[in-house]
Computed example of a mutant assay.
Amino acid sequence: MAQKQYNVTGMTCEHCAASVKEEVGEVAGVSEVVVDLAAHSVTVHGTDLDDARLRAAIVEAGYAVADSISDSVAA
């Protein structure tokens, strides 16, 4: 299973987290979305994750992707 983590700016509340989870969760291959408001990060788990689509989903939710923190694949 693949994992991608992003540093996201502008998230300040649970509504922000819910918006991001909803948009990112609709991207093909996504099985789980974890939002950490304190760290301003979004971690996505799934298969065949498309970086461009994940970033676009975060932007669609109304937030900016500052940087990709990590990109890994678990065996």
Rank of each mutant, 00 (worst) to 15 (best):
M1K: 04
M1V: 02
M1Y: 01
M1S: 06
Q3W: 00
K4G: 00
K4Q: 07
Q5W: 00
Y6H: 05
Y6A: 02
Y6N: 03
N7F: 09
N7A: 11
V8Q: 00
T9C: 06
M11F: 01
M11G: 00
M11S: 00
T12C: 08
T12I: 11
C13T: 01
C13L: 01
H15T: 06
H15Q: 05
C16N: 01
A17K: 04
A18P: 08
A18Q: 14
A18V: 08
S19Y: 02
V20E: 02
V20Q: 02
K21P: 04
K21Y: 04
E22I: 06
E22R: 15
V24P: 02
G25D: 03
G25M: 01
G25H: 01
E26F: 06
E26A: 13
E26W: 05
E26N: 15
V27N: 01
A28H: 10
A28D: 15
A28C: 07
G29H: 00
G29I: 00
V30L: 04
S31P: 00
E32D: 12
E32R: 10
E32M: 07
E32N: 12
E32I: 01
V33R: 03
V33S: 06
V34A: 12
V34N: 12
V34F: 04
V35A: 07
V35Y: 03
D36C: 04
D36R: 01
D36E: 11
L37V: 05
L37Q: 07
A38R: 10
A38K: 11
A39C: 08
A39V: 07
A39E: 14
S41N: 11
V42A: 14
V42N: 09
V42I: 12
T43G: 08
T43V: 13
V44A: 07
V44N: 05
H45V: 12
H45W: 10
H45F: 13
G46K: 03
G46Q: 02
T47A: 14
D48S: 12
L49R: 05
D50K: 09
D50T: 12
D50H: 09
D50C: 09
D51H: 09
D51P: 05
D51E: 15
A52I: 09
A52P: 10
R53D: 15
R53N: 14
R55C: 09
A57I: 08
A57T: 10
A57N: 09
I58V: 15
I58W: 06
V59M: 12
E60S: 15
E60M: 10
A61Y: 14
G62I: 11
G62K: 11
G62V: 12
Y63I: 04
A64W: 13
V65I: 10
A66V: 11
A66P: 13
A66Y: 11
A66H: 14
D67W: 12
S68R: 13
I69M: 12
I69G: 06
D71N: 13
V73F: 06
V73K: 06
V73H: 07
A74C: 07
